Computed example of a mutant assay.
Amino acid sequence: MNITIVVVFYKQKPEESKTFLSLKSTLFSKQECKNNIELIFYDNSPVKQDINPIHYEGIHISYIHDQRNLGIAAAYNHAWTVAKENGSEWLLLLDHDTDLTDKYVNEILNLPQLSKDIVAIVPKIISEDKMISPVYSHSLRPLQEELPVSGLQEKPVMAINSGALIKVDFLNALNGFNQDFPLDYLDHWLFFEIYARGKKVWLLDVILEHELSVMDYSRVSLNRYQSILNSEMNFYQKYKKDLYPSYRKQLVKRFVKQVLTVKNKKIAMHTLKRLLSM
């Protein structure tokens, strides 16, 4: 099975990231699969870094520096183009802070014969000892409800990008990743499209750890929150329309909570501004 792997970096040296270090100790050690792997480092950092692929014999590595920092959609679309050109069956999406395991790598390299309807294969992701992905996508508060179990996901789920293996043929049908979601909610859009087009997701019986700080207001700047909120609103207005009325109500509750508990009041004021524009 041919796989193209893309790891997206920002202001971090690839060789210092959890993802790269775990790739070295798992995937890079498997001689039998090296000729079937294309690895892309896509660096959105302001300054180009000194990367020497010669250090990793047997793995074809390319380094792309894009100081424009257009987000992950641009990085994924570059990787999708490469995957098409080299005849890859799957595209593996990775952030810089996902800790891969031998079990996960063995699972994706030795997949059983799966139905043609399965176009995404994902692990269970935990953050701070709590499973955060995948989740069922019929609710605005999925972490408070039943969580998916391993195997075929008949009911629509949403999974985070990192660790997701996506069928290249399916991405071809989508014409790549949606540039309307350059960073945030790109995963929501992708998994919405999977089920909207009658396809399915396979959940591995594998757990990976991943750092997730989104919506932790002590760690999110105003600009970052604005980006999240704009993408969130776009998603519920144009795609997950059945949840839009409930989303508006939840946004009101979020504004009240932000006024009462969030130190940076500009965040609450931006929520109010966007509410009034709906």
Rank of each mutant, 00 (worst) to 15 (best):
Tyr63Ile: 02
Leu21Ser: 04
Tyr225Ser: 03
Arg197Gly: 08
Asp216Thr: 00
Leu208Ala: 09
Leu27Arg: 08
Leu93Pro: 05
Ala196Gln: 14
Gln67Met: 12
Lys265Glu: 08
Val157Ser: 01
Met158Val: 15
Asp43Ala: 10
His55Asn: 14
Lys200Asn: 14
Val201Leu: 02
Asp169Gln: 14
Tyr136His: 12
Ser150Asn: 10
Ser133Met: 10
Ser137Gln: 13
Ser22Met: 00
Thr261Phe: 13
Val8Cys: 12
Asp66Cys: 07
Asp102Gly: 15
Lys124Arg: 13
Gln144Phe: 15
Glu232Lys: 03
Ile121Met: 07
Ser137Pro: 11
Glu16Thr: 11
Val220Arg: 09
Ser150Phe: 11
Ile59Glu: 04
Tyr136Leu: 09
Pro112Ser: 00
Met1Ile: 10
Asn110Gly: 10
Tyr239Ser: 05
Leu251Glu: 02
Ser231Asn: 09
Ile125Asp: 09
Ser221Asn: 03
Asn264His: 07
Val105Ser: 02
Glu193Gln: 13
Glu57Tyr: 01
Ala120Arg: 04
Lys84Trp: 00
Asn77Tyr: 06
His270Gly: 01
Met269Ala: 13
Gln67Ala: 14
Thr271Cys: 08
Asp242Phe: 05
Ser62Cys: 08
Leu111Cys: 03
Asn44Ser: 06
Gly71Gln: 10
Leu186Phe: 10
Arg68Glu: 14
His138Pro: 06
Thr81Ser: 12
Asn86Phe: 02
Asn35Ile: 01
Pro182Phe: 02
Leu93Met: 09
Arg197Ala: 09
Ile3Arg: 07
Gln144Ile: 15
Lys240Val: 00
Tyr104Phe: 15
Leu94Val: 04
Trp80Gln: 09
Val168Trp: 03
Phe41Asp: 07
Trp202Gln: 07
Tyr76Gly: 01
Lys199His: 15
Lys155Glu: 13
